[in-house]
C-alpha cells in the first residue's frame, strides 16, 4: 500500500500547529494505528487518548477531516487514494495537548442527574420488552462525540444551561427504566435545557454505537415534558383524576 499523508493538529489550548507526517500503512489500518506509528517513529510525545482500540471504551474521539469520529474505527481505506488525512482533537472542549482535550465538563454534568431510584418494596422482575427499549441507551460508551458535534455546545457554547445529548441518553435510560420512581423532568426543562435542542440530529449521525439519540431518547423526553408542562388537556386530566 502507498504511504499516506497525515496532517495532525498539535499544541495547547492557546496554540495550534499542524504537523505533517508520511506514514507507511498496512492493510486494515485505522487512524489510531497511524497515530501510534507516528508516536513510535517520529513524535514520541504526541499526545493521544486511547484505551481499548476496539470501539468499546470511547476514549479516542477526535475529528478526522472535520468529522467527529473514533480513531480506532476510522479505516484508512475509507479515504480516497492520495487523500490527505487531517486529525484534530474534539473542538468543543478545551485542549490539554495535541489530540487530547479536557472532557471533565461531561463528568460534572453527570453528577447532577438524579440516580436510579427504585421503590423500597420492588419485586425485581423485569420484562425483556422493557429491556429492549432501555438497553439501547446503555450501549453508550461515553465517547462524547455527540457532545462535541451538538451545535448548542459547539457553536453556541451553552454549557452552563444545556446538558447535551449524552446526558439526555442517560436520563432517557433512567426515566424509561421500568422500576425507577424518580422524576428528572424538572431538571430536563430547567437546568438541563432540553428546549435548546432543535433536534437537528447531528448527535445521532456521529454516534459510533448507533444509538438513535434523537428519535428514541430526546424526542420521547420532549414529549414527556409536553405531558408535564405544555399540554393543557393533560393538565386538566391530571387535576380531575388527581394523579
Amino acid at each position: 500500500m502507498p504511504d499516506v499523508t497525515f496532517r495532525i493538529s498539535t499544541g495547547s489550548a492557546e496554540q495550534n500547529e499542524e504537523k505533517t507526517y508520511r506514514v507507511p500503512v498496512a492493510e486494515g489500518w485505522v487512524v489510531l494505528d497511524a497515530v501510534h506509528y507516528i508516536q513510535a517513529h517520529e513524535a514520541p510525545d504526541l499526545a493521544v487518548r486511547w484505551n481499548c482500540k476496539a470501539a468499546k471504551c470511547g476514549s479516542c474521539s477526535a475529528e478526522v477531516n472535520g468529522k467527529p469520529k473514533l480513531m480506532c474505527k476510522t479505516r484508512l481505506d475509507d479515504f480516497a487514494d492520495g487523500e490527505e488525512i487531517v486529525v484534530y482533537p474534539l473542538k468543543t472542549f478545551p485542549r490539554i495537548k495535541d489530540l487530547v482535550t479536557d472532557v471533565s465538563w461531561n463528568y460534572e454534568v453527570a453528577k447532577k442527574i438524579k440516580p436510579f431510584t427504585p421503590a423500597k418494596d420492588t419485586k425485581w422482575s423485569m420484562d425483556q420488552r422493557d429491556m429492549d427499549r432501555v438497553q439501547e441507551f446503555r450501549k453508550c460508551i461515553e465517547c462524547f462525540l455527540c457532545q462535541d458535534v451538538c451545535h448548542v455546545l459547539r457553536n453556541h457554547d451553552k454549557k452552563p444551561e444545556f446538558a447535551g445529548p449524552r446526558s439526555f441518553v442517560r436520563i432517557a435510560n433512567l426515566e424509561m427504566h421500568p422500576l425507577d420512581t424518580a422524576s428528572r423532568l424538572d431538571f430536563l426543562k430547567n437546568e438541563g435545557g432540553l428546549g435548546y435542542c432543535n433536534i437537528t440530529k447531528c448527535c445521532t449521525e456521529v454516534c459510533p454505537e448507533d444509538i438513535h439519540i434523537t428519535d428514541n431518547a430526546i424526542i420521547p423526553l420532549k414529549e414527556r415534558l409536553v405531558d408535564e408542562y405544555y399540554d393543557p388537556i393533560a393538565k386538566l386530566f391530571k387535576v380531575f383524576s388527581g394523579k
Partner: peptide
C-alpha cells in the same frame, strides 16, 4: 471555560 475552537478553527 476556555474554548479551543477559537484557536483551531
Amino acid at each position: 471555560m476556555a474554548n479551543s475552537p477559537r484557536t483551531m478553527e
